[in-house]
Amino acid sequence: MAQISQLIPTLNPVYAERLKLRRQSANSAVWDLLDQVYDPELPGLTIWDLGILQNVQKTKNGWKIDITPTYSGCPAVDAIEQDVKKVLTSANLSNVEVKVVLSPAWSTEMMSPAGKAHLKSIQIAPPDEQDIVECPVCDSQETQLISQFGSTACKALYQCKSCLEAFDYFKHF
């Protein structure tokens, strides 16, 4: 029998919590604007989908945007901070403060289902809770680990035993 999660699409609780925060926010226009900000190392993946964008708040005379790094040494944080400011400033929002928050620590569970689907479309295997790594090219589960680190700290290098393609796996973290 198929598992329930295969029959009824379910959201993991961590992402559901983020989604609730965004949906209940009075600043939905700003959240939507920030969907123009992408991770510099993962083309086409927005900071919302990746789980980096944590909160949008109105301050006394401006805006405070909370982001969280994927890994503590992630070199993309500075670029993302600049991009957030650029997008909001060009939409005529002023006094934008970007705050890097560490808690709760980022996890792949913060990623959106759309984000995971996007990863697969650019041939990066999305994170899996049981670390079952599916080849993004031929969907085979017969894959092997080549190296625990790939092109960035958040990815590992795998190879498909069926189609022999080497690919990045976005680590479950």
Binding site: Y71, G73, F149, G150, A153, L157
Partner: peptide, 20 residues
């Protein structure tokens, strides 16, 4: 090559930790 990348990535994690 893979080892080279792995060790450099671990170095990066430690740099991040030091900065914090």
């Amino acid at each position: 090559l893979e080892e080279d990348i792995a060790l450099s990535n671990i170095a990066l994690d430690y740099i991040g930790r030091a900065r914090l």
